[in-house]
Design a protein around this nucleic acid. Structure first.
Lengths: 230, 230
DNA sequence: AGGCAAAAATGCACGCTCTGTAAAAATTTA
DNA sequence: TAAATTTTTACAGAGCGTGCATTTTTGCCT
């Protein structure tokens, strides 16, 4: 079932290379123009002209104009998923998710030239920021499946086939928990980023990130000095 | 500074009543048409005609066509905020948020004729669902402020003016925590609703809702039978 | 009542987004 | 080089969203 001809491997064909180049040219032109003139003053015609293609071609690559500003990194979700699956086995699910997301954020930090522009464009337009959230939401289901695989795999081999409670209840819990964990993890990253961007003083993002996950692991108790009610 | 004339109270004027009636007619027409023909096949012209106004008037009430499907209840956020502030003082922040959101969900459940249609429209269109999320996101900041007020008010009066740690650190924690709590709370509700809608068997929504908040309060540990790592 | 000012609804015009469709150009394969 | 496949392009058209001037409705005053 493997490819007999080496030419069809990913990225070797001239056709595929041109397609990726066109897509990259479109996204870069879009982000660059948006950073300069504001996102809502950048038309599809302007983006296409800057990228050297026709306006109709734009819509062969993106379903909507806004996608050119949002779809900057399509493989981020897959990397986090792999990070969750490859995390050390002695980590709790929340810890594994934290480590995978921290690694991905460090990955992004490396090319902060493009990402800084992108962040500025998003923060200047609430509509695009919402759309970016929606894009991350699409990855949530896949992330939940990865977490479920990490949970279900070892648990099934260790516990065998003798559940103490009802089978349906266990499956319900197993179904709900990974989705909650994936959603809360994404929210945690968002809050950390927003809080870090809002502060003018230069605190390390790593500190905010760690603090957020400490709150979550502790069960979100009141952060005051003494705890009258544990 | 109080109103001398009673006529300017909220909702008493004929003008305000008519405006609300028009808005209600537009939203109801939009949701009803979308439930029947699919949201993307419902034009602004059709909605306006069903509501008995001109297409231009539609855009005097909504900034975009999608808002007619999303902006069903604009005061929901305010009710949750009040619920947080009026919750019993012996409840933890997470418990207060849970109670306020549970009360709001119970409120919504009362008119589940409209809300059921609305849910069906959203679940049939990922784009509208994302927009709905964005709408809830706008309330998040206000909710965070309400939570901060609930935390900061009593704490300031009880602790006086002698903080044990650095002042900046306390303010940072106090700033980050309410925003995280508000965001996670919204996410929790979303996951509970999605999980409840996805299941074909009729389990009580209250059970799912309570289960989600139990996960959060416990610090999101692995839900398996025995705990090898607390 | 009747008239006056503010607010809302409407009609019209215009630019932009997005989608078919079919023809032309480029790339791969034979 | 010629055929086959894919991509790009031009054209047409429906729908969205906005600005502006006009008309109708509402609230308030004498």
């Amino acid at each position: 079932m493997q490819d007999v001809s080496e030419k069809k491997a990913s990225g070797s064909g001239l056709r595929e290379r041109k397609k990726r180049a066109t897509r990259a040219a479109l996204t870069e032109a879009a982000v660059r123009l948006a950073a300069e003139h504001g996102a809502e003053h950048v038309t599809v015609e302007a983006i296409s002209e800057a990228a050297g293609v026709s306006p109709r071609t734009f819509f062969n690559y993106f379903d909507s104009r806004d996608d050119a500003f949002v779809m900057v990194d399509a493989e981020s979700g897959a990397r986090v998923r792999r990070g969750v699956l490859e995390a050390p086995a002695d980590l709790s699910p929340l810890e594994a998710l934290r480590e995978a997301m921290a690694a991905e954020l460090a990955e992004i930090e490396q090319r902060h030239e493009v990402w800084d522009l992108h962040a500025r464009v998003l923060s200047a337009s609430p509509r695009l920021l919402a759309r970016s959230l929606a894009a991350h939401l699409a990855d949530e289901l896949g992330l939940a499946e990865a977490l479920a695989q990490r949970l279900g795999g070892p648990a099934a081999t260790a516990a065998g086939s003798a559940p103490s409670t009802t089978e349906k209840e266990r499956r319900r819990a197993l179904d709900l928990y990974p989705r909650l964990l994936a959603a809360v993890g994404g929210t945690a990253v968002r809050v950390a980023v927003e809080h870090w961007c809002a502060r003018q003083d230069r605190i390390a993002f790593t500190d905010v990130f760690r603090q957020v996950f400490e709150h979550l692991a502790a069960g979100l108790p009141a952060p005051s000095g003494e705890s009258r009610r544990p």
